[in-house]
Each structure stands twice: as structure tokens, then as C-alpha cells.
Design a protein around this nucleic acid. Structure first.
Length: 284
DNA sequence: GACCGGAAGT
DNA sequence: AACTTCCGGT
């Protein structure tokens, strides 16, 4: 089946065009969840805006089509990138068909977080990715009458993304991401907390609302949203009960190891990497 | 709520 | 070993 834009992706594309915040995956710290109504016939929506009046000329049609094409390419690229990011964060592969129950739960946890849903993952326990993919929207609704459609739509995005990937695998966005690719793409390599924090700090576009550098050269950073960072860490380590109390305890374990410390003047939620030289060499 | 470290568990 | 969990105290 062809890759169709969902309402959500279309909205995202519009945001992108207006140079707004450009990550829909991690747009989480403000505003209530961007809960899109699942759109089963997106192509209609794509072509309806503003052509009600006079019939457009041939050239106008061509221009518009090319524009839409560009937007679509851009959106697809962003979706793939965001799926990638989520995969790294969750340590799962992009294709839902390959997921086991644990992977499914991680993905559900992530989706809950993304759309700010209440805990719905319990309704999907013991399901593999293959099970999930064989379910209809009605099946989803049966397990969660309120949010089944959202989960179904989000799974659809992932399946489409995986299909895209398979269709053109060698494309590979050979850009700035290669560093973290090398660091994280080996699946199931246990990640250290300090590495994880650096990963987040490396992507200010996505994470600056919850953690950011105060002084990158000195390695001083501030956790802006402790609960959010803890949640992300919990997702990555598959520790649903993770919170800032525990995360900060782990950070404090670094004090005696000389990996992280409190800066000279201790400030609330501010920490400092002890030897920041190694990674400050490269830009974001 | 953040911060701190001891102690025990995984 | 690298956390995670829990906690009593600042």
C-alpha cells in the first residue's frame, strides 16, 4: 500500500513550513496532547484546501503538485527520522513485525508519553508486534475504547515508516546523526546514564525543553524538567517506576567516580560533566 | 521539591 | 559494575 499522510503528519508538515517547532515526536512539555483524530482518508484532505473558487490553471496545478510533493518528501523524511530517534531511545527495531512483548510494551509506553495518554499499555499485555499488526482498528478500540484509534493510527505510521525503509534502505541520512548512530545503533548495548544525558543534550532541538547546556564548554547542564527526563530514562531502560529521585541518586553515584559533579556554586537541577573536552569538539 | 549519601537489591 | 530502590535527614 502506498504511504499516505495522516492528519497528524500533514499538520506536522504545515508546522515545518511555518518554521515552527519541528519535532512532533517529542513535542511534549507544553500544551495538551496533540491528539489527532485518526484520518482514514487523508488524500481527500490533502487536496481540498483553497481550491473552491475558480478552477486553477494547468501551471498552477503543476506548481501545487510539486509543492505537495516536496512537503510530502520532507514529512516522510521527518517521520523516518523521528521513528529512528524513538527506536534508539527505546532500543527497539523500527518494524513492528519484529517486536516481542517487551518491545510492544516499550512502544506503548512511548506512545502514551507522546500523546499524553493515561496508562493503556496494560490492556495490550502479552501481545507481540505481529499480534498488534494483525489487529484491526476495532480490535484496538475493544481494548481501549477511548484511545484505541490513536494507538492504531500511530502503529500505522510506524508500519508505513518501516515499509518505506525497506523499500529504499541504502538511502540512509548520511548527515549529522552518524555519531549517535555509531554509539547507539548496536541493539541491546546497555547504555550508561551519563551517555544518555549526553544524547539528550546533543539534540537540543528535541530536548532543550527538558535538559540543556548552560555552558557546553565546561560541561555544565541544567535539567529543566526533572520528571520528563526521568520518564525518558525510564523508557530507555524499561524502568516504568523511574523518577527523578532515583535518577538523581544515580547521578550522585557519579560524584565519587568523577564523571559528573555539582558545579562550583551548587544550583538546583544543575550538574557538570567532569571532563567535557572530549565531546565538546563537535557541534550539534 | 531538590539534594545528600547509606544500605540493600538487581 | 552500574545502576535501582528505599530512606532518613538537610
Amino acid at each position: 500500500t502506498p504511504f499516505l499522510l495522516s492528519q497528524e503528519q500533514w499538520n506536522f508538515g504545515c508546522n515545518l513550513m511555518s518554521t515552527e517547532e519541528n519535532s512532533w515526536v517529542l513535542k511534549t512539555t507544553e500544551a495538551p496532547a496533540p491528539v489527532p483524530p485518526p484520518c482514514r482518508s487523508p488524500e481527500q484532505r490533502l487536496f481540498t484546501p483553497n481550491e473552491a473558487q475558480h478552477p486553477p490553471s494547468e501551471m498552477e496545478v503543476q506548481v501545487e503538485e510539486r509543492c505537495l510533493e516536496q512537503v510530502q518528501t520532507m514529512v516522510v523524511g521527518e517521520v523516518l527520522k523521528d521513528v529512528d530517534t524513538a527506536c534508539k531511545l527505546l532500543n527497539i527495531e523500527p518494524d513492528p513485525l519484529g517486536w516481542n512483548c517487551v518491545h510492544v510494551q516499550k512502544w506503548l509506553l512511548w506512545t502514551e508519553h507522546l500523546y499524553r495518554l493515561p496508562q493503556v499499555s496494560v490492556m495490550f499485555q502479552e501481545l507481540s508486534g505481529r499480534d498488534l499488526c494483525s489487529m484491526t482498528e476495532a480490535d484496538f478500540r475493544q481494548r481501549s475504547s477511548q484511545f484505541g484509534d490513536i494507538l492504531f493510527a500511530h502503529l500505522d505510521i510506524w508500519r508505513s515508516a518501516a515499509a518505506m525503509k525497506e523499500r529504499c534502505p541504502p538511502e540512509d541520512t548520511a548527515d549529522e546523526d552518524s555519531w549517535s548512530d555509531v554509539m547507539c545503533n548496536f541493539p541491546n548495548q546497555p547504555i550508561h546514564l551519563w551517555q544518555f544525558l549526553q544524547e539528550l543534550l546533543l539534540k537540543p532541538r528535541n530536548y532543550s525543553r527538558c535538559i540543556r547546556w548552560l555552558n557546553k564548554e565546561k560541561g555544565i547542564f541544567k535539567i529543566e524538567d526533572s520528571a520528563h527526563v526521568a520518564r525518558l530514562w525510564g523508557i530507555r531502560k524499561n524502568r516504568p517506576a523511574m523518577n527523578y529521585d532515583k535518577l538523581s541518586r544515580s547521578i550522585r553515584q557519579y560524584y565519587k567516580k568523577g564523571i559528573i559533579r555539582k558545579p562550583e556554586v551548587s544550583r538546583r537541577l544543575v550538574y557538570q560533566f567532569v571532563n567535557p573536552v572530549e565531546w565538546s569538539a563537535r557541534g550539534e
